[in-house]
Simulated assay, not measured.
Amino acid sequence: MPFNSHSFGIIALAAYQPDWNLFRTQLLSIQAQTHANFQCLISADGGDAEVEDFVARELGADERFRVLGFPDRLGFYGNFERVLSEVPENASWVALSDQDDSWYPTKIETLLPYLDSVSLVAGQARVVRLPGNQVVAESTQRSNVGLGSLLAQNQVTGSLCVFRRGLLDLALPFPRLETITQVHDHWLAVCAKATGDVRLVSDVVQDYVQHGGNVLGEVAGRKSPAQSLNHLRDMSRKYRGSDSPVAMLQAANDLSFGWRRVMADALRKRLDLSNAADDAVAAYETGHRWMGTIRTLVSGLRSGEVALPCFLEFLAGFPVELFAKASRL
């Protein structure tokens, strides 16, 4: 069945202590979609009664919106996994939603037809900073890249994408590595690229709102070496419980090779890979061969598919990777 105005889908929205004004704007923008055949599942990561009351008050009797209440807090990664686990079998497509953006009315209508030929499609966003609605960028300018580069550096922002419901059969349950680089949209993107392709289109389909409460925001500008070191120290304290040199090296590996290894190992276990996908996965999986890994990263850097800061993060992760490889010999 073609993906058209008759296709039923699910909008999966992860909520946690939302800013009520921004949440209202997002809900109303979803309600106003020109493609109206959907159900919006709102997973409240704790505090569901307050969210449910707000949704009922703002949207009235619109039965397309349903709040799923959970008492335990899982964080955004687990919360998206939880709401995606509730997507019914009769849905044809799934769109992800944050709680604080603003969709343009034709977003779903614009993106849906691309699913006739790919597993996942993502548009672009205008980046807006609060307070004052200052336009930071007219477009996020995400790019189409190969699987090896996509594993290294994510190009798919969850709130900008729509994907076939069947992708969840591969993606769930989500693989785990407790680090900030563990993100749902990156995992869904590599699953789609490894099976049915990903397409990023130039259409700007929403405002991506930047504010003080963003879990992950649109990065503006390049970090200085001192800022990068401070960021690594913060991540080491949070995820490794220490900012000792050894802990920081381990954190650097988690932030680069670690998360990619978790994804690559999961793909290897769950899929019969094509030759092209096999080469990309082999560059990052446990026991990877260094020549293939270096070739993939350098090729991505030279082509512009992998940015220099991302490449440098992998260099920072090399010492622990080398030690782990030597230990296995």
Results as ranks from 00 to 15, higher is better:
6 H>Y: 10
12 A>H: 14
15 A>Y: 03
16 Y>T: 03
18 P>M: 04
20 W>R: 14
30 I>T: 08
33 Q>I: 08
35 H>I: 12
37 N>E: 09
39 Q>C: 06
45 D>F: 05
45 D>N: 10
46 G>L: 12
47 G>H: 08
56 A>D: 00
57 R>M: 05
61 A>R: 09
62 D>I: 13
68 L>I: 14
81 E>T: 12
81 E>W: 02
85 S>K: 08
85 S>R: 04
92 S>P: 00
99 Q>R: 09
99 Q>Y: 15
100 D>F: 06
103 W>P: 02
108 I>F: 02
111 L>Q: 06
111 L>V: 13
115 L>R: 12
116 D>W: 09
122 A>H: 08
123 G>C: 04
125 A>V: 00
129 R>I: 04
130 L>N: 11
130 L>R: 11
134 Q>R: 04
146 G>Q: 01
147 L>P: 06
152 A>V: 13
152 A>N: 01
154 N>E: 15
156 V>E: 04
157 T>L: 11
162 V>S: 10
164 R>N: 10
167 L>Q: 03
168 L>C: 09
169 D>Q: 11
173 P>V: 08
174 F>K: 00
175 P>I: 03
181 T>P: 04
181 T>G: 01
181 T>M: 05
182 Q>K: 13
186 H>W: 05
186 H>I: 03
187 W>L: 11
187 W>D: 00
193 K>Y: 10
193 K>D: 13
199 R>H: 09
199 R>L: 13
204 V>H: 03
207 D>F: 03
207 D>R: 12
212 G>Q: 14
214 N>L: 06
220 A>G: 15
222 R>H: 10
228 S>R: 13
229 L>V: 02
230 N>K: 06
242 S>Q: 12
243 D>T: 14
247 A>S: 14
249 L>Q: 12
255 L>T: 11
255 L>D: 09
256 S>R: 08
256 S>G: 14
256 S>K: 11
260 R>F: 01
262 V>Y: 01
263 M>P: 07
266 A>I: 00
269 K>I: 01
284 Y>N: 06
288 H>G: 11
289 R>W: 08
289 R>E: 15
294 I>V: 09
294 I>T: 09
295 R>S: 13
298 V>A: 08
298 V>N: 05
299 S>Q: 02
301 L>D: 00
304 G>Q: 05
306 V>Y: 03
309 P>F: 03
313 E>S: 15
314 F>P: 00
317 G>H: 15
317 G>S: 10
329 L>E: 06
